[in-house]
Design a protein around this nucleic acid. Structure first.
Lengths: 218, 218
DNA sequence: CGGCTATCAGGACATTTATCACGCGCAGTC
DNA sequence: GACTGCGCGTGATAAATGTCCTGATAGCCG
């Protein structure tokens, strides 16, 4: 029997995935988490063989959570679940020690099979994505450039970016100029679009404000 | 027995939702669709009582598909499923004739209940979302302004926007200026962010072109 | 050590954006 | 018929943005 923990923020999807895996004889869902910060704690409590972690968890994102889980509970293998599969995300997932990377667009039956294989110690990666990851260009941006772009992506004008990152306006302009030429964009918004599309820019806090996030506070 | 058709592009989620609903005694999943263009056809073939349609289908988006379905098969009731719930999306869904609007973040058990209620002829709307929709500000942008913003969101500079929409550069600049003041943004990227966040600018055709609206003149 | 890159900064300059004023035509609507 | 909102346009002006160049420090690697 393989014990599985599922970390996915959208209740409906989580419940559905639980229902899906519950139809398998050899898999049992022993725990759930709906927030990135709960993952490690939940795994320590339920001791699953495999943790299925959505990449877009609120709070600590799924990949960061996977990294922490690996350090806290090395025996627990993790599979990253993602809706939008970019080579950059795959790379980050593998770097964080994930053993599996499953795209939500994969055939439903594949999930259980992936869980089994990861539980057996194998590594499971969507072959198409693996190929794409090889031919994809690396993120050409430095850490600092990414920080600048991230703030710019929130809509801040140069001076505000400078203030928030403790830089001078000139420096920010230089960074932005370099970013544009590196990613091959003609415009700031194009640069942001490209970076997002290629998975370089983490929607860390992009939609953060998001009006309606159902949660039991109130 | 309630016959349900599920339209959701991500196979894994679709399979999971099927599994979830299959555990209900009185509900049977009679058909599936993974693309917006297949929805009407699939419903004509399987004649479900309720169609569960994801908002973000590829091809024809879920809401448009719901509208077409309503015209093609008025007896079939539709429930819109969405991950990110904005008042604007709710409004569009209701305008398209949807009878239910379920957020993927809702408790898993609620889906079956929503399906039952819609099948019974009731209308099902997340109460929190309904409240939010009342207090949310209307989209202040005109259709044309939205078109301009949509092209701008792809990263095109003013002149390209003008070319693609058959406008003069000056007009585009005026539009963008008005857009900024209407949405209360300091920057073009901020305006885009706000519009996306409030659901006014949906990624209809994010990568696609979809331009050309001929005017009577020219 | 010398070469390389990342980070940071300032200045000069061209271009693009954003704002504002003003105009015209058309479709509703009161 | 006057009023209003929308679409579309021009032109002027100010501000922000993007480019290019120079220069500094610090760390890493062969």
């Amino acid at each position: 029997m393989i014990n599985v923990l599922i970390a996915e923020d959208m209740h409906l999807v989580r419940g559905a995935v639980v229902a899906l895996l519950s139809t398998e004889e050899d898999i049992e869902v022993v725990g759930e988490a709906g927030h990135g910060d709960e993952v490690v704690e939940a795994c320590l409590r339920h001791r699953p063989d495999v943790a299925l972690i959505d990449i877009g968890l609120p709070g600590t994102d799924g990949i960061t959570a996977a990294g922490r889980l690996r350090r806290a509970l090395p025996g627990c293998r993790t599979v990253i679940l993602t809706g939008l599969a970019t080579p950059a995300a795959l790379r980050r997932a593998l770097d964080a020690g994930a053993r599996g990377f499953v795209v939500k667009d994969a055939p439903a039956g594949q999930l259980a099979e992936s869980v089994r294989r990861v539980a057996r110690g194998e590594q499971v990666i969507d072959p198409e994505l693996a190929v794409a990851a090889l031919s994809a260009r690396e993120n050409p941006l430095t850490r600092r450039e990414l920080e600048v772009l991230k703030v710019a992506a929130e809509g801040a004008p140069v001076e505000e970016i400078a203030d928030r990152l403790y830089l001078s306006g000139g420096t920010v302009r230089n960074y932005l100029s370099r970013i544009l030429s590196k990613v091959g964009a003609r415009t700031r918004v194009e640069a942001i679009r490209i970076a997002r599309q290629d998975g370089w820019l983490w929607p860390d806090d992009v939609g953060e404000v998001g009006l309606i996030r159902h949660r039991s506070r109130v």
